[in-house]
Amino acid sequence: MLRFCLISLAVLVFFVSASFSQASKGFITGQITEHTSGQPIAGAKISVKDAVEATSDADGNFRLDIESGVYSAEISAEGFAPVVKNQIGVTGGRNTLLNVELEVTVSESVEVRSEIFAVNAEQTVSNTTLSREEIRQTPGSGGDPLRVINSLPAVGAASGEFADLIVRGGAADENLTFIDNIPVADFTYFTDKFDGNRGGRASILAPDVFERAEFSAGGFGARYGDKMSSALDIDLREASRERFQTVIFADSGTAGGSLDVPLSKKGSWLFSARRSYIDVALDVAGIAEQGIIGYPRTLDFTNKFVYDFTPRHKLSVSVLNFFENFDQTDEQ
């Protein structure tokens, strides 16, 4: 009897260890395409530093099985300029989507010099690109891109309460924001209704829905219109096309989750919901009953649907919804 129990215990430990080992691994999938034509690139090499390598197939697709962590990847192919992607987060049992566009390199070039219109090599455009992991890992930001950008050079805030951007001394309404190539006037909670130059307190976008955020404090193109201070271009991430997966997240003031729904190999649907719990914390602590502050409540939803009709034609629909409420106590 004792021998049977020992054997059963050993088998149980083996399967638990195997399950834990499998859950600790995630995978990176994506497609490598040519930047101009959108055609897939076969034979591209995807190298993750100090980890594993993979090669894209005839359709440009690849898959990397890798331990959980944050990595940097180099993507290269013959005849194309290599690309390095940093801060790629991999979570156990989840798929991380990594689509990369490579540009063709010119083997022969002609150099034209002009002393009159020479470019000053020391003059650089104030452009910063932030990945999802960089936004999430910035201390004190709570995963809010506006809080992260407030810490960049030449950027300030009117006060610690508001999340509006003051860039190079300009007014807050001189900034322009694009979300998935759609101009958005304001995407913050509790915008000051009595002062149009003040933005809200926090972004309505949850940390898990970002793909990247590109911020330009000068030198941006004509597509951004006549804004004088800055341009912020935010891309929402696509959901996994490999499998269903969920993420639960929480920070100092909000909690929520996201759901990735694959729609065959050609499309996906991302759904994210988040709610603040400050009102619950204030109610439990009894602070709001003392008449000091009220009960702020926020709720936001993010949806992104993507479907590929052809390698060069894609339908993308992004829907953002948010609700805000502030209940004041009788003492106020």
Rank of each mutant, 00 (worst) to 15 (best):
F271L: 06
G93A: 06
V280W: 13
L259R: 02
E161N: 08
Q245G: 08
F322P: 02
S126M: 09
D57E: 08
D330S: 15
D235P: 04
L205G: 07
L2F: 12
L236A: 01
S76T: 04
P207I: 00
M1P: 14
D251E: 14
A51K: 15
L98F: 15
V52H: 13
D195E: 12
T138A: 07
I234G: 02
I179C: 07
F249V: 00
R113K: 15
V13K: 08
V306W: 00
N181K: 08
N181M: 06
I46M: 10
N120R: 11
G257H: 01
S229F: 10
V16R: 01
I7R: 15
F14T: 14
I248V: 14
N99P: 03
E289Y: 12
E161W: 06
S72F: 00
A231R: 01
E324P: 00
D327V: 03
I41Y: 10
G26A: 10
V52L: 07
E53R: 06
F14D: 12
A51I: 00
I166N: 03
V119Y: 01
S141R: 06
A81V: 11
R201P: 00
A77Q: 05
D59I: 01
A18T: 13
S159E: 11
Y277I: 14
F244T: 04
S216W: 00
P40A: 13
L176D: 01
G89N: 05
L315R: 03
S109K: 07
S107V: 03
G142F: 03
I28R: 02
A250W: 09
G93L: 06
F27R: 07
Q137I: 04
